[in-house]
């Protein structure tokens, strides 16, 4: 059983809009799957539906072999799913420390794990006592990811971790995600194909609320015509 997460025929409505129109794909354990697609393809909705923040109107979601389609968000978090939303969702009025303390739901933060996180994102140590709202965009993203990994997780759902970040910060993020891959399974929504290609083991491409391609990342990275057809861009043009 190496499938950690599986979606089959998932439909999601938001108000009168039919966003996900039968999404099928799966995420293998200990892999990093990139979810790509144009703006409005339904990638964020897909993550939010997995996290229980929006309810699937049809279809099934399985996690570790158990159905979680109707499971409430806090219970999904307790099963080991962590979510980093597109807007990062940090608590601006709280300090970096307080943000992290909340993420360690069981009580105290594990010192060794914290040192590991400081190694990935040294800025977190530097700004430990500062209000999270005063951090720069890149630091906020680092905090959002740090918070998601404050405790060991089975699955990390990360929505556009490189959005609006400077190239140097993106490079640091790539390094951090490489390290994260050793520890957990990741499903990452991304627009930056360079980032996606550097890290992804597997890829799923969405369009108009459906998965239009799924396979190995290497295969998509090597096939420029496929990129052009699926993403409407060439890798060369995007870099």
């Amino acid at each position: 059983m190496d499938e950690l997460l599986a979606l089959s025929g998932v439909n999601t409505h938001i108000g009168q809009y039919h966003i996900l129109q039968g999404v099928d794909f799966s995420v293998k354990k200990n892999s990093l799957t990139m979810l790509l697609g144009r703006n409005g393809a339904g990638k964020t909705t897909c993550l939010r539906t997995i996290m229980g923040l929006w309810r699937a109107s049809a279809g099934k979601i399985h996690f570790q072999g158990k159905e979680i389609t109707r499971t409430a968000t806090p219970d999904l978090a307790r099963l080991g799913i962590a979510y980093v939303p597109e807007n990062m969702g940090i608590f601006a009025g709280l300090t970096v420390k307080e943000n992290m303390v909340l993420a360690a739901r069981g009580g105290a933060l594990d010192e060794r794990r914290l040192e590991w996180i400081f190694g990935l994102f040294p800025a977190m140590k530097k700004f430990w006592g500062s209000a999270a709202g005063n951090l720069s965009g890149g630091q906020k993203q680092m905090l959002a990811v740090s918070r998601a990994i404050a405790q060991p997780r089975e699955l990390l759902l990360v929505d556009e971790p490189t959005k609006g970040l400077a190239p140097a910060i993106i490079a640091a993020m790539i390094e951090a995600f490489r390290e994260l891959k050793r520890d957990a399974t990741l499903l990452v929504v991304e627009q930056n194909f360079h980032f996606a290609r550097s890290l992804g083991d597997a890829v799923a491409v969405m369009d108009s609320g459906r998965i239009v391609h799924a396979g190995a990342m290497a295969e998509l990275a090597a096939d420029e015509a496929l990129q052009q057809r699926l993403l409407g861009l060439s890798l060369a043009a995007h870099q």
């Binding site: 996290m51 923040l53 409430a72 968000t73 806090p74 978090a77 307790r78 962590a82 979510y83 939303p85 969702g89 940090i90 608590f91 601006a92 009025g93 709280l94 307080e98 909340l102 993420a103 739901r105 918070r147």
Partner: peptide, 14 residues
């Protein structure tokens, strides 16, 4: 205080 800022994220933390 966290909930006042972002209830969804508090739920997502479990």
């Amino acid at each position: 205080r966290a909930g006042v800022e972002n209830t969804e994220m508090v739920e997502s933390l479990g």
